[in-house]
Write a protein that binds this DNA or RNA. Structure first.
Lengths: 119, 119
DNA sequence: CGAATGCATCGATGGATGTCAATTTATGGG
DNA sequence: CCCATAAATTGACATCCATCGATGCATTCG
């Protein structure tokens, strides 16, 4: 939904604002911190690729060994990024045997995108 | 001289597949870097609030002096954050007289959100 | 002109962050 | 049991980043 911001002429009076500009409220401080925390988790090329690679994998799940080589980073680094994504609520971790399988949290990306568009 | 560098994030390949089973392609490395660069610009509480405050302002524009006090940060810090947002293509800067007015770039947030949801 | 105001830039600083090598912890197999 | 494999944790390091005070640069006004 794209809003069209209408540029109203100069109305400097404070009490004249009843109709057109409709200045909504800005985001709150703690809401901004929460959203920033989620965005920080994704504001990294490696983590964006990890999310995308997990989503692109068959069955939409992948273990660390599937991700390390195509990503071109060391195993500890990949584990670190995956942990960040899990703590951000974007991935889930499921350890089966020796392997740890990661999956997308359904709807997590979409609700984040919705929050972002509503800022 | 108010030139605005609009950093259009890389929109990756057409992906018309609609349904679940087929594993789509993961995002490319350079697309991930471009998207991460845009997200980094917003992955900060102060910058999220700045964007929101500009959008919420009457006429959807605001100068630095309007933003410094409600944000609770020093003027140099606010100027720094605004510069980051302008360089990310999210805000425009328009200097009129002594004041510098910032506005949202229409649709910038929405296309970023769309790219994010498509990762 | 000179003072004042709004904003950008500079330099410094403390803290966060991405990365890797080395190590540790779990799990499974012979 | 002991070894092999997968993954997480640790420690270290370099870099980035948010923030501020001080300063510089325009612009406006007296």
């Amino acid at each position: 939904m794209s809003f069209i911001e209408i540029q109203t002429p100069v109305i400097t009076g404070a009490d004249a604002a009843c109709c057109a500009p409709a200045s909504r409220d800005a985001i709150g401080a703690e809401a901004a911190e929460a959203l920033a925390r989620s965005l920080k988790a994704l504001a990294d090329p490696a983590r964006l690729r990890l999310v995308s690679m997990v989503a692109a994998h068959p069955d939409a799940e992948a273990c660390v060994c599937d991700l390390t080589e195509p990503l071109g980073l060391s195993q500890p680094t990949v584990s670190h990024h995956l942990k960040v994504l899990v703590e951000a609520g974007l991935l889930t971790r499921d350890k089966r045997g020796t392997w740890a399988y990661y999956r997308l949290v359904p709807g997590a990306l979409d609700s984040l995108a919705a929050l972002l568009a509503a800022v």
